[in-house]
Design a protein around this nucleic acid. Sequence first.
DNA 1: CGCCGATGTTGCAACATACGCAACGAGGGT
DNA 2: ACCCTCGTTGCGTATGTTGCAACATCGGCG
Lengths: 256, 256
Amino acid sequence: MSQTVTRALRILAELGEGERSLDQLAEVLGVHKTTVLRLLQSLEEERFVYRDPAYRYHLGAGLFALSGLALEQRGIRRIAAPHLAGLNAATGQTVHLAAYEGGEVVYIDKYDSRHPVRMYSRIGLRAALHSAAVSKVLLADLPVPERRRVVAGIDFIPHTAHTLATPEALLAELEKVSAQGWAQDHAEHEAFINCVAAPIRDASGRVVAAASISVPDVVLPYEQVLELLPQLLATTRAVSADCGQPPHAGPAAPTA
Amino acid sequence: MSQTVTRALRILAELGEGERSLDQLAEVLGVHKTTVLRLLQSLEEERFVYRDPAYRYHLGAGLFALSGLALEQRGIRRIAAPHLAGLNAATGQTVHLAAYEGGEVVYIDKYDSRHPVRMYSRIGLRAALHSAAVSKVLLADLPVPERRRVVAGIDFIPHTAHTLATPEALLAELEKVSAQGWAQDHAEHEAFINCVAAPIRDASGRVVAAASISVPDVVLPYEQVLELLPQLLATTRAVSADCGQPPHAGPAAPTA
DNA sequence: CGCCGATGTTGCAACATACGCAACGAGGGT
DNA sequence: ACCCTCGTTGCGTATGTTGCAACATCGGCG
């Protein structure tokens, strides 16, 4: 493991909090400012950081460009985009696209609600594994051994009174999700937000992503969020079809 | 300058092209695969890269998250967002937001056209300094010494027959832009695309960003693009007002 | 069913590289 | 005009990085 790279990435993380001077960065990292300067010079060369005329460092455009490239690489994102935009337009609610990667669930796209009440989420952030509806959908498709392993590693932080609190409860929930073909989050992560999520499958029937609708209950009560389910399922079916999934396949994966 | 960091960033750039195996990366960088492995381990720890079950490396979610943070940090982007979305909705054309930083002009936001003909551009990419309308707007506000220095450093690649070919021509154009308060790109970068751009100013009167409308001439001929100018100027005026610029200020900066 | 090849991982010694120090320089505030 | 802060440079040192070689693991193929 490379100390140098780790430090460089810590600099980036720190700059993610806001602009910093050389000395500030040196202090935070606990290294001599000469060291920080050289790391920054390398980062600046690749446009990962940018130094303004006042000698303050900011995150740079190279980062945006790379992130854009990375998101474009995810074929699923491009395929799903028009469908999710349509769902967002039709319902007016926040729509998320999430994927499972290496033991975590991350948001890879987001369409904001038209309502003034917004959710706190951002592309690239991790979804809570035991409470987010998209996580349930994605975990439910894992092979049982990995599913158990991942669930065993979860820290069951109780976000609200409804949050599932034990591995057993979550595993039971995942069985249910797997059987019914969709998942909900009934105020399990945020006390005032309900979500529904459904899987997107590729040609092999494996779940490659999950789409969800999230609604603060000041906008719609729980029951009415469930009424959005048909629209969500129509959307995920359409995206799955664009991914090459045979239309006759049922909610449970054909390979299961 | 840090060799290690430079190599790590080259790995990221390479992964921007697509997934890679350890050996592929070692070959491209021209270093031993052990070296690459350790760099990757550090990158993976911070979620900048992600290794799939088949041992292929991809760009990771940490990158998206950081990029999102960085874009949110740019206050101008948030302030301009609703106005630019409105302009995009009203005209149906591609709208860009760009900023000058450290000798280059980068796109920091983009709203796609509703027409099937799309432009090639992406948030984070650099705009051509001598042909893009947004570049002209941003360069036109620089203090004269810096303006001259930047112009002197430009490589006047002729993208089309209309591309300005000399520093003198560009400096003259910048004078004009400065006086009239907006810029155009009449097929100077892409033969079939015309743009208009206008400055966004903050409370001090300095240009902090530029907004532009880009239209392929299969959609609208040049003359009709110019007719979009009033809408663009109304938008940039509104954004400037939100930035605290006094409404009475004319096209030229009050400090000039 | 077992061998072979390809690919990722580990231990270790050599040495290049990144590190910190101290002195220098520039810019801004008082 | 002074001082004080903050970024930059040169240099010796040792720490962290490098490449090698051997090992482990997985999959394909005979």
